[in-house]
Amino acid sequence: MSVPILKQGEILIASIQSALSDRELVELRDELADRVGRLRSRGVVIDVTALDVLDSFATRTIRGIAYTAKLRGAKTVVVGIQPEVAFAMVQLGLSLDGIATALDLEEGMLLLQRWPK
């Protein structure tokens, strides 16, 4: 597993360190779905600060992670989308509709903690 997943209280933090291959992204999805159940987590933060490209596949997989986590009872926040990446996503017509986003890890954690239970 190339993405470290940290546990902080009821929140899981997946910090993507480098550009991931498609297989690694899918692995991350499965691993998170599993851990949400095992560790009884209520929130997931996916930190994509280090990703230099979010193309249609990556966006779709991240959306998949968020929906999977939701069905398992956890809320997901995507943090750290870089300005250039956001710009390209808009131009590409990609969106993360219905998925919470925050500027960085700190904001994302705050958002999850304030979320009504």
């Binding site: 193309d55 249609s56 596949f57 779709r60 390209a88 131009q91 590409l92 017509g93 990609l94």
Partner: peptide
């Protein structure tokens, strides 16, 4: 597979 959007996206970019 979601791949279809890539081509349209490329056209837009």
């Amino acid at each position: 597979t979601g791949l279809g959007r890539g081509l349209l996206g490329t056209k837009r970019l």
